[in-house]
Design a protein around this nucleic acid. Structure first.
Lengths: 203, 203
DNA sequence: GTCCTTCCCTAACAAGTGTTTGGTAGGTTA
DNA sequence: TAACCTACCAAACACTTGTTAGGGAAGGAC
């Protein structure tokens, strides 16, 4: 007889999703290391040991949360990147898409922001490093394309500009609350206005 | 006989500073919760228990690190704010000063960025909340002064602009490495150029 | 009815946590 | 020489941590 079939390997059932969502919420709020499995179980209305019927470790919960988020993120990004837009339109679309992802995966983004730096060292989370490389590549290519086409300034350090744009977008997850007065698209519009045209008055 | 005099209450001796610096380094790299006192002791070349000759808890190390950083930060900020500069010059000076602080207190800034959100809830770290209020007040006042003087755009949400400027500056601590190819002043110059004038080419 | 699966509980485990206590080598002071 | 202080070590403490093993209630399948 083969080893007992565990629910972990099957396609994610509904209960599993619920638990991952509450876990992501607690991870985002308290930090991964400060979050005990007992706290997660509390929020889910069950006991710590019961979580291990659905998942085989605390770390695997974290992995699945981040994997799910990154998969959906790249779905959106690839659609934009394959659309054949100009550099400026690509940048606008990427930023807007990013704010939509923050809206949809607020908790996962917050976790990613806080923990990814320490996680990439582990081979289990190697997919984070790969995602970061693709991310940087896509952004740098867009920026360089824009500089070549004379739509982005040529006097700026491209790598610095990349970090600037990347950070300004994603740190928004630390204060963004879904259902607030600004929609993701509205925030994206204002952010793009600042990034592209600056906050100073033109003469 | 009174209680035994402990070195914690006296003015900080040299050894104490060294230990706080290594502790800050480890906190910044691994995160506060993931950092054990044994790891700190390892980096300092001593045993875990020996740390308690200098400090009375792990938390008090964290508190002193953040207090020292914020004290020096506000020294610099107050100098700028009391100089009677115009809004644009004030913004430029604040940003430049911020990058200098990142250069000087890289570890403390990284810790602050990662942990402050969870720490402000504890009354022990109430000074963080007070600092944040002063920070927001100073920045909002500068921005509003600039809008009134027609040097900053009036069509932007001031609160959003504040978060934008604040975040873009401080997240730099996550990738900045002292002794790199860019000085703090050079980074500040390029950041200010992007924030004030945008990255798009003007027509 | 009986069997089986799903989902959770009870109770414990070993490892790691921050912290304390008592001791001690080496230098300084009297 | 004797007393004392500084800065550390050695060994343990109580507690929390992630995780596991066995059991059991509910409900559908046969």
């Amino acid at each position: 007889m083969p080893t007992k079939k565990k629910p972990q390997v099957t396609a994610a059932p509904a209960r599993r999703r619920e638990l991952l969502e509450t876990a992501a919420e607690v991870f985002a709020e308290q930090g991964y290391n400060a979050t005990t499995v007992r706290k997660i179980a509390d929020h889910a209305g069950m006991l710590a040991g019961s979580l291990y019927y659905h998942f085989d470790s605390k770390e695997s919960m974290l992995e699945e949360i981040l994997r799910t988020f990154l998969d959906e993120l790249w779905d959106g990004y690839d659609t934009v990147l394959d659309a054949g837009l100009g550099p400026r339109e690509t940048l606008e679309a990427l930023v807007t898409e990013s704010f939509r992802e923050i809206d949809r995966h607020r908790a996962a983004v917050a976790i990613y922001q806080k923990e990814s730096k320490q996680l990439v060292a582990q081979e289990r989370f190697g997919f984070l490093a790969e995602s970061q490389r693709r991310f940087e590549k896509a952004w740098l290519a867009t920026l360089e394309r824009g500089v070549a086409a004379h739509v982005f300034r040529a006097d700026l350090d491209v790598r610095l500009t990349y970090r600037f744009v990347r950070d300004t977008v994603w740190v928004a997850a630390s204060w963004y609350r879904p259902g607030g007065q600004h929609s993701p698209e509205e925030i994206a519009r204002q952010y793009l206005s600042m990034v592209l045209d600056g906050i100073a008055v033109r003469e």
